[in-house]
Design a protein around this nucleic acid. Structure first.
Length: 443
RNA sequence: GGCCCCUUCGUCUAUCGGUUAGGACACCAGAUUUUCAAUCUGGGAAGACGGGUUCGACUCCCGUAGGGGUCACCA
């Protein structure tokens, strides 16, 4: 078994791409086989090395390892040979319309309520007309002549899936400048590199109908096909490929755990719950195309943040220490254990580190109360038990209790109205700083 | 517009003709924390609409509405 993830280096990987990569990866890791990473850079004008490097970096970050790499720009000779064969066998025909011509035709068709598909006018060209275009210096682009038949396959996720190849345009396989469009290299590579299963989004369903005919024209057997539903935004609108806010590197920069990204994208739109999963093995084990629904699923980044937070709440000190150092918030294991349950994101740890280290601007509404408390802060090193004794003393001295007792102390000591349990925090802050803050000093 | 697909709690979904329509997240409430958060427990919450078929329909059929995809010299 071999699957492929074939991104084009024309932009950053976004959650939709990652979901495709994950589906392939999970599928092949579950059943055993090769994961091919193919860089589809046939669009020379838009493909860049920078984006290609970004793809490697993003996949590595997510832990989606691959077994083989191929770059389409290296394989031109193979595509050329296939194209020659298709031409020789009469599957391709030359067309001389310009992009403007085609635009115009499509617009006219649309305005008449007709499907905007190519009218095959080039098929009716006489040799003399073709010669005239050539004499003008026009170079043809080449289309694959679809049979117009109804193609049906058993889709891995959708079941029986028909496509009317008569309802779509004959795909252009070769540009006027001689370069290839995605469709031909994709099929040629799938054959040549031995891809057995194509798993991709449902935006390729119609495409698959045409590609099946190209596989056949090449004398090959089409691979098994699986098309899963696309993601839509939280508002139900289509998730645009151009929404940069959903790019993978943005999630990484936000400090999100890649496991949270994987967990959400692997489970969204499936019957398995979106929940904290500690390891990819769990995801691999639970993966099944039968669990994937057929309706578009709503993607909400908040789900990723939520899972990320839950991961943090149970994270061991050793597993986050490096990240804490990077954030300049490594104050030891006691500190981590004290604050982790209160983190919505790892970034929040910086604020608590500052609470411990200072300076903190105390929030004091009742100076007299705070001053009384300041005098009751015990001397010497504070322990986990110091807080309880301190609070009891303040309660005796002021008569305050409950929220009226705790809130003013929390606000004066931390400058915040929320946060981790005060016991451990109090010990971490220390007697000197606690006393000073209660007196209103920003230390 | 043609072709393809979809429509169950706010969200992701289970149900493969007979169920008090189940779960997860979110939400609300209670407990706990002598505070907020975290945590635990409980609760409210759904079959787009209209026709059929059937003893019986969320489930099958038709129609309507809504959503997604595609119809590029993008991938």
């Amino acid at each position: 078994m071999k699957v492929r993830f074939a991104p084009s280096p024309t932009g950053k990987l976004h959650v939709g791409n990652i979901r495709t990569a994950l589906m392939n990866w999970l599928f092949v890791r579950k059943h055993g086989g090769k994961f091919l990473l193919r860089i589809d850079d046939t669009d020379h004008a838009r493909s860049t090395k920078v984006f290609e490097e970004g793809i490697y970096a993003d996949l590595a970050w997510l832990g989606l390892n691959w077994d083989e790499t191929a770059r389409q720009s290296d394989r031109d000779a193979i595509y050329q040979a296939a194209a020659d064969r298709l031409k020789a066998d009469g599957f391709l025909y030359p067309c001389y319309e310009t992009s403007d011509d085609l635009d115009r035709k499509a617009k006219i068709a649309r305005s008449r309520g007709l499907p905007p598909i190519y009218d095959r006018a080039a098929l009716k060209l006489t040799d003399a007309e073709r010669a005239a275009f050539e004499a003008e210096g026009r170079k043809p682009h080449w289309r694959f002549k679809l049979t117009g038949q109804r193609r049906v396959w058993t889709d891995l996720v959708r079941g029986e899936q028909p496509v009317e190849t008569g309802s779509m345009s004959d795909p252009v396989l070769i540009r006027a400048d001689g370069s290839f469009l995605y469709t031909l290299p994709s099929v040629v590579d799938d054959v040549d590199l031995g891809v057995t299963h194509i798993v991709r989004g449902e935006d390729h369903v119609t495409n698959s109908g045409a590609q099946i005919e190209i596989f056949l024209a090449l004398g090959a057997t089409p691979p098994a096909l699986g098309h899963f539903p696309l993601l839509v935004g939280a508002d139900g609108e289509a998730l645009s490929k151009r929404i940069g806010s959903l790019s993978v590197d943005m999630l990484r920069d936000e400090g999100i755990d890649p496991r949270a990204v994987n967990a959400v994208l692997a489970r969204i739109g499936t019957s398995d719950p979106i929940e904290v999963v500690q390891s990819m093995d769990t995801l691999i084990e639970s993966f099944d195309f039968a669990k994937v629904g057929r309706a578009p699923a709503r993607f909400d980044v908040e789900d990723v943040r939520r899972v990320d937070a839950q991961l943090l709440h149970g994270a061991d000190y050793s597993s986050v220490q490096d990240k804490l150092v990077a954030l300049d918030a490594d104050l030891g294991e006691d500190f981590w254990l004290a604050v982790r349950a209160n983190l919505a994101s790892l970034d929040d740890v910086k604020a608590y580190a500052q609470v411990v280290r200072g300076p903190v601007t105390p929030v004091i509404e009742d100076p007299a109360f705070a001053a009384t408390a300041a005098a009751l802060v015990p001397d010497g090193p504070l322990t986990g038990e110091s807080w309880q004794a301190f609070v009891a003393a303040v309660k005796d001295a002021t008569g305050a209790k409950g929220k009226a007792l705790f809130m003013p102390l929390r606000q004066a000591l931390t400058g915040m109205g929320h946060g981790p349990e005060m016991g451990p925090l109090f010990a971490l802050i220390g007697a000197d700083k606690a006393r000073a803050r209660l007196k209103g000093e920003a230390v």
